[in-house]
Design a protein around this nucleic acid. Structure first.
Lengths: 229, 229
DNA sequence: GTCCCTATAGGGGAAACCCCGATACTCGGA
DNA sequence: TCCGAGTATCGGGGTTTCCCCTATAGGGAC
């Protein structure tokens, strides 16, 4: 059951925030952090996606803070749902996971910001204000990464950057995700190991990936999402 | 740097608690929860193992609350260290991970309790009191599981072969799945690259994996299933 | 014709991987 | 009590992979 932690009498002129997190302790810490700001107030809490949808309807918050890993639906799904039902409601994603894994997904789903629980509390408040002001908040590192990804895409947005791979490159990418290593791919495709290495390098460039393990993770993830879209 | 959140003037007759967690928000929530109890007070906070050791020495707490997943060393290693240096200092493990994976390891390392962040705040307070009273606190489900394990003995192979990994090995396995490479893990754990390589070899043996890429895939998959069970 | 993309491949150094072995410490059984 | 098994920690040295640079040849684009 969504709880009201503040009566409307307290909200005079304050911006209202709804907290969605399945850890009571985190909710408590966040609530205290927000309520001690003079112009912010927590108008409700929820611990899963269902409660969250309900709480948004009831308390009409100015923004929502959503944890990525919830119990029932994932936070990403919740963000998508909220986006459909309340397109103008800004969402800040709060997560303990590395932004590299979920950051882009969260933003793609419609979130207006992503911040990790490891961050200092002041940064969390900053993120909240930025999102309330209609801006986007991400860490500097993540912003740089997304920019370079866009630049690499030559401005044209063709959906997933995977589509920019050539046929051979895509083939190598898929086999990577299916678990083949370089030598196995070379044999299977009757090519030199060196050629496969070149393809890997091109894929890394086009997808703006750092090193081999990031490439492999990306490939595995892509293969998995391709199987069940 | 460990912070003192209460002066000793406030501690009159109160039991003191040290909080070790790398998430500022969680520390804040936990501290508030504890400080609003009439007979408990937070005497310090730390965000990694090194700070924790130092803070224990300085603030001499009556008990410590340790998060399992810290930045440098894992919480399990910290618990072992604390156990050696302060055998009578009770430790409560607080974790977002399922108790099935880390609960037994934490207790084996010397913790006197294990509670998940998903639990209601009242349960957290209960756990703190139980541990302070010299008792052991685990969830009912975990208690039942451990009893049946004792009674059932070696009857059946319980769960995945991942449970056969040692603490260090599991740590490396998890970090592998989270995308760290060998060098990064060595730095993060303050170990030699060679040691990490040995752990990888042991993991490969225990899980009967062929080569490095199979190991990496397996680790990625395990981490993903841990996140969304 | 020149430029860019793609497919193919090599050289060479750095890093990772992998099979050995080694030391030290703990803990449970013979 | 000693011994072996398991764990934690590291090194040597050979093999493989990674990664940056370069290169050739064909096909479109302008």
């Amino acid at each position: 059951m969504p709880q009201k932690t503040q009566t409307s009498a307290n909200r005079r002129g304050k911006r209202t925030v709804l907290i969605v997190d399945d850890h009571p302790i985190v909710r408590q810490g966040l609530a205290q952090l927000i309520n001690q700001e003079h112009d912010l107030v927590v108008c409700g809490q929820a611990e899963d996606a269902h409660e969250a949808i309900q709480a948004v309807r009831e308390s009409q918050p100015d923004m929502v803070i959503v944890d990525i890993s919830l119990k029932d639906t994932s936070g990403v799904e919740l963000i998508k749902d909220l986006q459909v039902q309340h397109p103008n409601l800004p969402v800040l994603t709060l997560s303990m996971h590395d932004e590299a894994v979920y950051g882009e997904r969260a933003l793609r789903a419609g979130a207006r910001g992503y911040i990790m629980k490891q961050e200092a509390t002041e940064k969390v408040v900053t993120a909240i204000r930025r999102v309330l002001a209609g801006e986007i908040y991400v860490s500097d590192g993540m912003a740089a990464k997304m920019v370079s990804k866009l630049v690499g895409g030559t401005g044209k947005k063709t959906g997933s950057p995977v589509e920019r791979l050539s046929d051979r490159e895509l083939e190598v990418f898929r086999m990577l995700g299916e678990g083949y290593n370089t030598r196995e791919m070379a044999e299977k495709l009757h090519l030199s190991v060196k050629t496969i290495e070149t393809y890997r390098a091109h894929i890394k460039d086009k997808l703006a990936l750092q090193d081999a393990s990031e490439l492999l993770r990306s490939a595995i993830q892509w293969v998995n999402t391709e199987l069940q879209p």
